[in-house]
């Protein structure tokens, strides 16, 4: 598989604190790659820097060979890197449908408005709980529904790569399982996914490859199935056998 996203020696700092210290990894087209690690390891900072929300101190972020590091977020989105951030960033005052339309307007559709409208309808069918509440303010949705809306909105941006930051955060176990099923479904449809997750067990079950971040550096990496069996990882994050 060819590398779609190449991150090299990425460094992100906030004042004197260096949150990400020379992180390098790659994501191939069509796969799910997980970035896991404890709180404060630099996972979200890495994702925000890739997504253009935070300007990296140094390093390179290449999407299909095109350098994106340091570009403003709207240019990063235009290139096809779509972020579903931690906290979801739903527009609470807008209706559910308006949030979906705004997602579909992030990048132009080859088939114009008609294709964009059809894509919105496809996502609405994928998430029946949203279908019932299309005309309601998005702020009235439950946490799980808001996460589904955020993912649907991200998919509507026609991502070359979808960056998911902590999609399971704050959700009940049943909803977490549902969210991961949706992530697998989206990947099967052909979308490449970079997944940042504290729920290491679920992330390693979903991803093909994974990187473990600790104190802003890559501590371990490899195929997700192998990492799930790694005794160091089991002791630190998994509390036992994944399988």
């Amino acid at each position: 598989m060819t590398a779609l996203l190449e991150v090299r020696d990425l460094r992100v700092g906030y004042g004197h604190v260096e949150a990400v210290r020379g992180v390098s990894f790659s994501v191939s087209a069509g796969e799910v790659v997980a970035l896991i690690g404890p709180n404060g390891a630099g996972k979200s900072s890495t994702l925000n820097a890739i997504g253009g929300l935070v300007r990296p101190a140094s390093g390179s972020v290449k999407l299909e060979g095109r350098e994106l590091a340091g570009l403003p977020s709207h240019a990063v989105v235009a290139a096809g890197l779509i972020l579903v951030p931690e906290g979801r960033a739903i527009l609470h005052r807008m209706t559910v449908l308006e949030n979906l339309i705004a997602g579909a307007e992030a990048r132009p559709w080859p088939g114009g408005r008609g294709e964009a409208r059809a894509a919105v309808e496809t996502q609405v069918r994928r998430f029946p709980s949203l279908q019932r509440r299309l005309d309601q303010p998005a702020g009235a949705l439950s946490g799980g529904e808001q996460q589904m809306l955020a993912i649907a909105r991200g998919v509507l941006g026609r991502p070359r790569i979808l960056l998911l930051d902590e999609p399971s955060m704050g959700l009940a176990p049943l909803l977490v399982r549902q969210i991961f099923e949706i992530i697998e479904e989206i990947n099967k449809d052909g979308t490449t996914i970079l997944l940042v997750e504290q729920n290491a067990r679920m992330a390693l079950q979903t991803a093909q490859n994974a990187y473990v971040l600790e104190r802003g550096e890559i501590a371990l990496h490899g195929p997700a199935a192998d990492l799930a069996k790694d005794p160091r990882l089991q002791a630190a994050y998994l509390g036992g056998d994944v399988a």
Binding site: L53, H74, V77, A78, I90, L91, M94, E105
Partner: peptide, 16 residues
């Protein structure tokens, strides 16, 4: 309206 509610959310949606 997106910028009025949350400039961060607007940026995530590709808004300049």
């Amino acid at each position: 309206r997106a910028v009025a509610e949350s400039p961060r959310a607007a940026r995530i949606l590709g808004v300049d």
